Simulated assay, not measured.
Amino acid sequence: MHKKEENNRSTKKRGFEQTSSNDIIQLIKKNDSVLSAEEKDHIWRNISGKTIGKKQRFIVRTLSIAASILILVVGGWGIYRLTVGKADIYKEITANINIDTLHTSCLYIGKQVIELDRQAEVYCNSEKGQLKIVNRDGNSFNISVPDSKENPFLQIAVPQGNKARIILADKTTITVREHTKMVFPIAYNEKTREVYLEGEAFLDVTKNPQKQFNVKTQDIDVSVLGTSFNVSAFPERNIQSVVLVRGRVKVSASSGETVTMLPNQKYTFDKSEQKNTLNNIDPYNDICWKEDLLVLDKEPLSVVLEKVCKHYDTNLFYNAQDMSKIKVSGKLDISVPLDDLLKMLEKIAPNQITIDTLKKTIKMNVNPK
């Protein structure tokens, strides 16, 4: 009996050793096949032995790829997930939304899309797995969020003329500027707090020495424990910036350089030249957009009008070359109706322009003072 079993094993071994390359490939293609250690060792010896000539090298390459596929099948999708970086995941999420086609802010929870008020607030309640949406008029409603393991990321898209506030689970408050997309969690993981930004936002981060807070963008990353700061990182713009109001932050750029900032400093990163600068400033002008204010300091009127058109999602008719000759200073409240804002423009550029609010035309006076 023992002799018969030994003969069977011997026959099986000889048969396996005589297996051709094509047979090996077919064997590997069977995902449900279970190979013994001896069989796996023989496959690799068979593969490594066939290294003479182009045809054999092609076979080796084919078998290596096939064996890799088998390993992936056995290991499952977990291996794939380990090789995909977070930045790639974030970009995949934001790439699905064209913000230029939106007229009001939208919140994305998996495949669910919730339209928001032009200045809505979103409160994250990780314990209940809910979001509370509060509109500008005070009306509110709750939304249940599916299992965070299945849908770990939420996204908000804020188009022109809109603004939104996100209050995260730890009470960190993020004011999201128009034309901005942001990915955020309803609950943090055990080690870090993290959001991904394409656009501009002001963050007031709740202090937690045990959990660092990270803001990731395409070109710069900001790391803090608890502080207030503004990040401007529009993908289409060459200059990215961070303005620090309170606390300390560390900024890492795609160039590999890292800078630690102190309050009342502004960090700028030039993507095309891969260079950064750090200057002392008054941060108010960079963060007053939170209060719906546009602060102007000898700015060409053509630039101001371009900003107004984008904010109100409208067209104004003017000669850009003429308007660039007029420099204006002051504050504009961009929360008011467009007609009221145009009247403000006439006041900060007295005797220099004539505005027809009905036709939306701005003309430079013949002899501007």
Rank of each mutant, 00 (worst) to 15 (best):
Asn46Val: 04
Thr354Asp: 14
Gly49Glu: 04
Gln160His: 04
Gly161His: 05
Val122Leu: 14
Thr357Leu: 13
Leu107Arg: 05
Val295Pro: 00
Asp322Lys: 08
Gly256Tyr: 07
His179Met: 14
Thr51Ser: 13
Lys50Glu: 12
Ser105Ala: 15
Leu316Glu: 00
Val60Glu: 11
Val308Glu: 00
Asn8Phe: 00
Asn22Pro: 00
Lys363Pro: 03
Gln56Val: 03
Met1Thr: 04
Gly138Lys: 10
Glu17Leu: 11
Ile97Phe: 00
Thr101Met: 11
Arg246Met: 07
Lys149Cys: 05
Tyr108Gly: 07
Ile186Lys: 07
Asp313Tyr: 12
Asn125Pro: 08
Asn139Val: 12
Lys128Arg: 09
Lys216Leu: 13
Leu293Ser: 07
Pro152Asn: 04
Tyr90Asp: 10
Leu107Trp: 02
Arg248Met: 14
Gly53Gln: 12
Ala95Cys: 09
Leu345Phe: 12
Glu39Cys: 00
His103Pro: 00
Ser302Ile: 01
Lys128Val: 00
Pro152Thr: 00
Lys331Leu: 12
Val183Arg: 10
Ser329Gly: 12
Gly256Thr: 13
Glu198Asp: 14
Leu63Gly: 02
Ile71Gln: 11
Val113Pro: 01
Leu293Gln: 14
Glu291Arg: 09
Glu150Asp: 09
Ser105Met: 06
Leu358Lys: 11
Asn162Leu: 01
Glu273Leu: 13
Ile79Asn: 05
Val84Asp: 06
Pro159Gln: 10
Asn285Gln: 12
Lys290Cys: 15
Arg237Leu: 15
Phe58Ile: 07
Ser68Met: 05
Ser148Trp: 00
Gly75His: 02
Val134Asp: 01
His2Gly: 13
Thr172Asn: 12
Thr217Ile: 10
Cys124Ile: 00
Lys360Glu: 11
Leu197Ile: 09
Val113Lys: 15
Glu127Ser: 11
Thr314Asp: 02
Val113Cys: 09
Ser10Arg: 15
Ala320Glu: 15
Lys307Cys: 04
Glu6His: 13
Thr268Glu: 12
Asn285Val: 08
Ile239Asn: 14
Asp270Cys: 10
Asp270Thr: 08
Asp137Leu: 09
Gln352Lys: 15
Ala169Ile: 00
Ile52His: 10
Asp339Asn: 14
Gln265Ser: 11
Asn208Asp: 15
Val245Glu: 08
